[in-house]
Design a protein around this nucleic acid. Structure first.
Length: 577
RNA sequence: UGGGAUGUAGCCAAGUGGUAAGGCAACGGGUUUUGGCUCCGUCAUUCGAAGGUUCGAACCCUUCCAUCCCAGCCA
């Protein structure tokens, strides 16, 4: 069994000629980069960055950005930096830095030694701020936060200039230095850019550049008590790192004007910011605020709960990084806000796992089968391929004996039309083993099926039809005496509605949690699974794809359901009902 | 009511003046020792709407409509 835990390099699965042929047209970002390369705008260089704030775990939305930034760099023979945007000490923690590193690496992002932190630039950023002050383009403002809001004006009304706006350079410099020196309490003053209080773009109405925060920073400790704001930090960080294309999401379109303003004011190297639409998925929430709430309030077991859309959750669920990359490639890139259907992700997961996951047998809702004409103490071993279409996966042996377990759902006392499985008098194939015919169902007083009495056809060894007779149904099974008990966690959507973000007045997204998002069952596995390791991904034949969980103990394996198989019978039956 | 961004099928998404790619979903069928995979077929006379320019418009022009973003000392 392969452990299939090692991710391939990022672009290998998106750059095959066949794929490219199937995907005509570059997305608008790659098209622009190609134009820039053609015109020599950045000397033909491509240098991107993935800039997460270490205040939470990475999720599917970040996957899109990671695939884009690292993918673009790779495709254009450029580089992509990993940069932690850590300018707000009260929200950021080292725990998140660790998880982000792990997740980016898992997804296939390679940043070599280019791991940067906005906090690395604090001193430079400070010097640039003094420079802006000396140029008369920044000033220290004593207004309170509330006053600044009032002075800002509204969407339709221009703002008013702060009474402190025209302090002298000397006074500003002195005040800013004293801010840095810790002479003032939190909120007492801020440094603002002097731009235009009447700008129709609110971002440009003298944006705050620095605020006072007497707080310990996860990297700089207590070295600073003033911290730069995002808009000021991001463009300078990009510039300092020689980024060519600064890719971000659509909500930053308004901020681009300020991005450009800062760099122009300082006369620095100027990367190009380009915005794209963020990813939304049906039946899930992808906002940090909501994800953190799910974790903190205990609606899930943690950031890596397999129902979480976090990369660590998806990984634990058994989703391969290759599937995520394929998903991001299929979703495409545009400037329209969009919500992708979960079925698209599910398709990518199944597509990869179908090709790569070894097949094994497991019974999750057992019903005992006794084969009356099979010798009492006989045990046979059947050789079974791990993959029906790909012999390179090899095979294993599975024991067969008189007493077996099959899936309760594979038997019906009164079979509906087109039911190809077991029922009284019906014959079915036990996968890779024998044909059996059900003679009798033993029931309890309540009418529950306790056990099935069957007979087998010795001529059908291996599941072959001895005389060419057709047996439509093939079901999976495990040998009762040899099966390994296991805990199996059946996961479903975390939310019961398509869009948990849009809920009626008075409700919150938490009111739409799916009460059946996790069902734990005790299953029985074929013995070959004894050798599996946490992280191994397999297909339980006819049931779905499963991944061995880290909660497994030597005597007690735990498997998470990654995805079910498509089930056209369930669909058919539903229609009939 | 200011500014910005965006409207192509149920969901993504190509298309950039020459007569609507592709994928997901859905539906019908073939195949099948997984009711899986796979294969074949169906699925936009029309591109947010209305006018206009043109031999010709999803693409150009005008007006309108809808959705999203911005009033953090968050990112």
């Amino acid at each position: 069994m392969s452990s299939n835990t090692a991710p391939d390099a990022l672009p290998n699965d998106t750059a095959t000629p066949a794929r490219e042929a199937a995907r005509p047209g570059l997305d608008f970002i790659r098209a622009r980069i190609r134009e820039d390369n053609a015109s020599g705008r950045f000397g033909g260089q491509v240098h991107t960055r993935f800039p997460p704030e270490p205040n939470g775990y990475l999720h599917l939305g970040h996957a899109k950005s990671i695939c884009l930034n690292f993918g673009v760099a790779r495709e254009f023979s450029g580089l992509c930096n990993l940069r932690f945007d850590d300018t707000n000490p009260v929200k950021e923690e080292s725990e998140y830095v660790e998880s982000i590193r792990e997740d980016v690496r898992w997804l296939g992002g390679e940043w070599q030694n280019r791991e940067f932190y906005a906090s690395d630039y604090f001193e430079k950023l400070y010097q640039y701020a003094e420079q802006l002050i000396r140029m008369g383009k920044a000033y220290v403002d004593d207004l309170t936060a509330d006053e600044i809001r009032e002075y800002r004006g509204t969407l339709t009304q221009a703002g008013r200039e702060s009474p402190y706006r025209n302090r002298s350079v000397e006074e500003n410099l002195d005040l800013f230095r004293r801010m840095r020196a810790g002479e003032f309490p939190d909120g007492a003053r801020v440094l603002r850019a002097k731009i235009d209080m009447a700008s129709p773009n609110l971002v440009m109405r003298d944006p705050t550049l620095y605020r006072i925060r007497h707080a310990e920073h996860h990297r700089t400790g207590n070295a600073w008590c003033i911290y730069p704001m995002y808009d000021y930090t991001h463009c300078l960080s990009d510039s300092l790192e020689g980024i060519t294309h600064s890719l971000c999401t659509l909500e930053f379109v308004n901020n681009r004007e300020l991005y450009d303003w800062v760099l122009n004011a300082l006369g620095l190297y100027h990367p190009q910011q380009i915005e794209f639409a963020r990813l939304n998925l049906t039946y899930t929430v992808l906002s940090k605020r909501k994800l953190i709430q799910l974790v903190r309030e205990g609606h899930v077991t943690g950031w890596d709960d397999p129902r979480m859309p976090t990369l660590s959750g998806l990984r634990r669920r058994g989703v391969p990084p290759e599937a995520l990359r394929e998903f991001c490639a299929r979703v495409g890139l545009a400037r329209v806000n969009s919500t992708v259907e979960y079925s698209m992700l599910e398709f990518c997961i199944r597509e990869y796992l179908n090709a790569h996951a070894p097949r094994v047998m497991a019974v999750l809702d057992p019903i005992k089968v006794v084969i009356e004409n099979y010798p009492e103490h006989q045990v046979e071993e059947f050789e079974m391929p791990y993959h029906p279409e790909d012999a390179s996966h090899g095979s294993r042996k599975a024991p067969f004996s008189r007493e077996l377990y099959i899936e309760r759902d594979d038997f019906r006392l009164e079979p509906p039309k087109k039911f190809h499985r077991l029922s009284p008098g019906a014959e079915v194939r036990l996968r890779y083993a024998y044909f059996i015919t059900c003679r009798e169902a033993v029931l309890d007083e309540a009418g529950n099926v306790l056990e099935l009495r069957c007979v087998y056809d010795p001529q059908s060894r291996g599941g072959q039809s001895p005389d060419g007779r057709k047996v439509k149904g093939t079901i999976h099974w495990v040998s009762a005496a040899h099966a390994i008990p296991a805990e199996v966690r059946l996961y479903d959507q975390l939310f019961a509605v398509e869009n948990p973000n849009a809920v009626p007045e008075g409700k919150t997204f938490l009111d739409y949690l799916n009460p059946d998002s996790l069902r734990v069952v005790q299953g029985l596995l074929e013995p070959a699974l004894a050798e599996s390791k946490p992280g191994d991904r397999v297909q339980f034949e006819r049931l779905g794809y499963f991944c061995k969980d880290k909660d497994s103990t030597p005597g007690r394996p735990v498997f998470n359901r990654t995805a079910t198989l498509r089930d056209t019978w369930a669909k058919l039956e539903k229609k009939g009902a």
